[in-house]
Amino acid sequence: MSTVLTIGSGKGGVGKTTAVANLAVALAAAGEKVVCIDGDIGLRNLDVIMGLENRIVYDLVDVVEGRCRLRQAMIRDKHLPELYLIPAAQTRDKSAVSPSDMVRLCDELRGEYDWILIDSPAGIERGFKNAIAPADRVVVVTNPEVSAVRDADRVIGILEAEEKDTPSLVINRLNPAMVKRHDMLSADDVVDLLAVKVIGIVPEDDDVIVAANRGTPVALDPKSRAGQAFRNIAQRLKGVDVPFMALDDQGNLWQRLFAGRK
């Protein structure tokens, strides 16, 4: 059984691409067969975050317009043999693909892969509609900030109107020190406001940027806090009940001291 999982947000820059790359490697490392599709046509990014930018020959639009077969556009990951990326086209725009193209493409992948992860572009227009059309499940990423929460609510509203299953929420870039001094919405606040189930809380973590620099997602780093959070989300996606990690400063400090880093 395959699950088509789309990651969306409304607001840009909240961590959709980071989430797709990390959930993809975490699922693949846990033995699942995974394909990710970069749905952000014109602003291709998932390739660099996964470190696969040098291997691209064909892209999503080439597949849709019949210039290559689906397999030819699937790039195999460097480390995980059961992980593939279908990159976005860089020189085209969102209108080059339609929602029904996406449904057809995902139907071709269903059966052979356990997970088809789609990285949605920001916004609620064509690119987002393309990304959610084939989705069995949607994960909405937000940050504990007023604009990101408001936009997440809009996206959840649109998914309700389209009669998709209620999405689950990833709260990304939570800063425990700021929450502690009541200068950042807590995870509970965000869940209370949006009234959907939370599937993950990812702390603000410099390792995410270091990992992006290297093109090796942070979920592959056993010591990273954010990496652990993404691995936990991958387990929850598989239906495993993983407790939420304690995100207070002290835990962080102790972990860093004992891990002997930074």
Binding site: V146, G157, H182, D183, D189
Partner: peptide, 19 residues
């Protein structure tokens, strides 16, 4: 008021009106 409390109160109103 702490800023997180302002954020929550303001969002509560904004979301109801948006929805």
């Amino acid at each position: 008021k702490r800023s997180a409390d302002s954020a929550k109160e303001r969002l509560q109103l904004v979301l109801v009106h948006d929805r």
